[in-house]
């Protein structure tokens, strides 16, 4: 029964774990864009007042865990999730699953993740990886961000599974159960559900800080930062945006390309040509996100003189992005699919 786990590299860790686990259970059609789209991974929220790492608090994705849960639910797959108070129980559970030959997803903090580049080790607790075995007391780890598999000692594994702070993993492990073959009809429905949910969340949630209006909110804030915070701190804030936006697999440009790829892959299932045209719009939005990062980079690197006019250029780009995405999501919302 035991089947060797095959490493999957992905742009985003949670997608990657989803693809890896579902593929392992025989769902060969699954791809990262499909997981991301069916799980409605794309999102935007700018939380006012709150600051993270001394910068603005912006999230580009839905709550951790929702992508995989959403996709699995659409495909009729139950996901077993367990959290622990006791480190010992958490370890025993993981070891037991390994013995049974079941690869499991683990939520971890990256601050103490030894194989991560030191520059990336902040107190970020919603990273995901797969543990698929144990050898000479070391866990065999497939981290979707990495190109190849890696290992963690027992001690390190406990540390990263019990990292503390916001979104503390509390030893969180998860794996799909009783996976059955999935029909094309189910996949189609899952895709439609994912699209409709994202279109709703990006355009129809009330308030000015979420979805496409959230992007406008950020633009408005950027216009104020230089006067409010001074040129240096305003520059650091922009740096923070770029880091969250273009960090490994998260955020701005990367997510738009991923979403565009999802719509392209949805096309053969739904056979609606409008999807391809809308996919192009997300590609355009992704290119603009990257352009905004370049523009912000010029400011925090001090290459141009960090004038108010330069901040206005960044803000204008975000306004343009917000508009493109609004139109694209509204089209998706109205689209008669099936």
């Amino acid at each position: 029964m035991k089947k060797e786990y095959t490493h999957v590299q992905a742009a985003h860790c949670e997608n990657g774990v989803g693809v890896g686990l579902l593929k392992h259970h025989g769902l060969d059609f699954i791809t990262e864009p499909l997981v991301f789209g069916m799980g409605s991974g794309i999102f935007y929220i700018h939380v006012p007042i709150l600051s993270i790492n001394n910068g603005p608090a912006i999230a580009y994705r839905s709550m951790p865990g929702l992508i995989f849960s959403g996709t699995s639910k659409s495909l009729g797959i139950k996901v077993n999730r367990t959290k622990f108070r006791s480190e010992i129980k958490a370890k025993e559970f993981l070891d037991q699953k390994i013995k049974e030959g079941v690869p499991v997803g683990c939520q971890v903090g990256v601050f103490n993740l030894p194989y991560f580049p030191p520059e990336y080790r902040f107190h970020f607790n919603a990273h995901n990886l797969i543990v698929y075995g144990k050898e000479n007391g070391n866990y065999l780890v497939s981290d979707p961000i990495m190109e190849t598999v890696t290992k963690l000692t027992e001690e390190d594994m406990i540390k990263v599974r019990f990292a503390k702070g916001p979104l503390a993993p509390k030893g969180h492990v998860y794996f799909p159960e009783n996976v059955k073959p999935v029909s094309n009809d189910t996949i189609q429905k899952g895709i439609i559900k994912g699209i409709k949910k994202s279109a709703f969340m990006m355009t129809s949630l009330p308030g000015s800080i979420v979805g496409v209006s959230g992007i406008q909110y950020t633009a408005k804030q950027i216009r104020k930062w230089r006067d409010k915070l001074g040129p240096r701190k305003a520059g650091l804030y922009l740096g923070q945006i770029v880091r969250m936006q273009e960090e490994i697999g998260t955020g701005g440009g990367g997510f738009r390309f991923l979403y565009a790829a999802f719509l392209e892959q949805a096309h053969p299932y739904l056979k609606n040509d409008a999807l391809l045209a809308i996919s192009e719009e997300f590609t355009k939005a992704g290119d603009l996100w990257r352009e905004s990062a370049v523009q912000m980079g010029r400011i925090y690197k001090g290459r141009i003189n960090n004038e108010q006019a330069d901040f206005e250029v960044c803000a204008d780009l975000l306004m343009q992005i917000s508009d493109i995405e609004k139109q694209a999501f509204l089209k998706l919302k109205k689209l008669k699919l099936k």
Partner: peptide, 15 residues
């Protein structure tokens, strides 16, 4: 890697 990202990260570390 991408230079724009690298300098954002470098900046954060300088800070």
């Amino acid at each position: 890697g991408w230079e724009v990202k690298k300098s954002a990260l470098d900046n954060a570390w300088d800070d």
